[in-house]
Amino acid sequence: MELITLMVGTVLVNNVVLVKFLGLCPLMGVSNKFSTATGMGVATTFVLTLSCMSGWLIEHYILEPLNLQYLRIICFILVVAAVVQFTEMMIKKSSPLLHRTLGIFLPLITTNCAVLGVALINISEGFSFIESMTYGIGASIGFSLVLIMFAGLRERLALSEVPKTFAGTPVALVTAGILSMIFMGFGGLV
């Protein structure tokens, strides 16, 4: 039961993107087409859950016994980079079209602050292995939910006559601001 509240907490209440403001660059970069947004969501979910699990293992079985905690960030980045490379190969194999439309944003998942951020939060919150996995999955579902929602909004925005000075990214940033205002409504839920 406790895991469910943790999950709901990460997806809605303190959403990774809209409340913790992690992972904003893919939100802006990939969300102008619905298909690329869903592709990005799935890729990030895969990467994030894997890196959370491996992050926890590395922390508790390598760094802590050898008290090398100061190496934590480097190791995590190494792992995340490897997982991203692995996903890129898989996507290139399974759907070249998605690979081309995601383009530069696929390798950029490594630098996606949500991925590294969530892994680090897991450690600082002192979660158990199961909790850190749920937290990872919750964070990535929250990220994908916001990304897909945002992609739907931007696709409708693409066809409306937004004034020239606001067309494109400015109006998208305003919409993202409004979205985070909406998610504040879920505050205190958990």
Binding site: L68, L71, I74, C75, V79
Partner: peptide, 9 residues
């Protein structure tokens, strides 16, 4: 130790 851990990883 750090060099060993990082290289092995």
């Amino acid at each position: 130790l750090t060099i060993a851990v990082l290289t092995s990883l």
